[in-house]
């Protein structure tokens, strides 16, 4: 009877199947630690006569729910060809491992082709687009205000002119127009001032940064000079303390 069982086991051992393995690693591992971990893991697989056909590191991803008090996880996907007897051992090995939060080991068909599914690529460019838009909008605000004000003024002028035409003579028109022009000029000047002020502020910041850099350089120079002086004093043996 024992011999028969052994023979069956040998028959099972000869069978190789394709498996897909997904690991979720701890998020607080460093990149070097992750690469080391994966190298060791592939070594462990090869020692047990496994053939790694595909390895894909997804990177950090937010989990849908907390797993072992972690909000994030590092996802890694393997496609392996492994002997069927080794799978239970591998499962136990992964369950004991502390750095692996979750793992999923499933059998796949032989004609399975791994394909990537991009979910976050559509969301990411939106965020990138949003950021520069805000900067532009801040700059354009002054321009937009001018654009908005002008069309509002023009109809008012026309209306007033039309209203004024009937009771008053032609001289009043020119006066009104001149007054409006003056107002416009004042507004434009105010806007120009604002722009100038912004430029001045930027220049001031730049000057400050330069000053800081210069101060740092000066400090370094002073330190180096002091060091050289100290060396001279020490080397000279003229210590008159």
């Amino acid at each position: 009877m024992a011999k028969k069982k052994e023979a069956e086991a040998r028959v099972v051992e000869a069978e190789n199947r394709m498996y897909e393995l997904m690991l979720v690693l701890k998020p607080d591992l460093l990149e070097s630690a992750v690469t080391k971990k994966l190298k060791d893991f592939t070594k462990f697989l090869k020692e047990n006569e496994c053939n790694v056909t595909m390895e894909d590191v997804w990177g950090k991803r937010t989990l849908a729910y907390r797993i072992k008090q972690f909000e994030e996880g590092i996802y890694v996907v393997y496609n392996i060809i492994a002997p069927t007897t080794f799978i239970s051992e591998l499962d136990n090995h992964l369950r004991i491992d502390n750095e692996v939060i979750r793992h999923l080991l499933i059998s796949i068909e032989n004609d399975y082709k791994y394909s990537k599914f991009d979910e976050e690529i559509e969301e990411a460019p939106k965020e990138e687009k949003k950021a520069p838009k805000k900067e532009i909008s801040k700059k354009e605000e002054s321009v937009k205000e001018v654009v908005k004000e002008e069309p509002v003024e023009e109809p008012i002028e026309k209306k007033e002119e039309s209203d004024v035409e009937i009771p008053l003579s032609g001289t009043s028109k020119e006066e009104v127009v001149e007054e409006k022009k003056e107002e416009k000029v004042v507004e434009e000047k105010a806007e120009e001032k604002e722009e100038k002020e912004e430029k001045v502020v930027e220049e001031k910041e730049k000057v400050k940064e330069e000053k800081i850099v210069e101060e740092k350089e000066k400090e370094e120079i002073d330190r180096s000079a002091l060091d050289s002086k100290l060396d001279d004093l020490l080397s000279g043996d003229d210590l008159n303390i």
Binding site: M22, A64, Y65, I67, Y75
Partner: peptide
């Protein structure tokens, strides 16, 4: 159910 187990989808 597999996606839920690995934390890709919520329960």
């Amino acid at each position: 159910k597999r996606a839920r187990h690995v934390g890709l989808l919520p329960f």
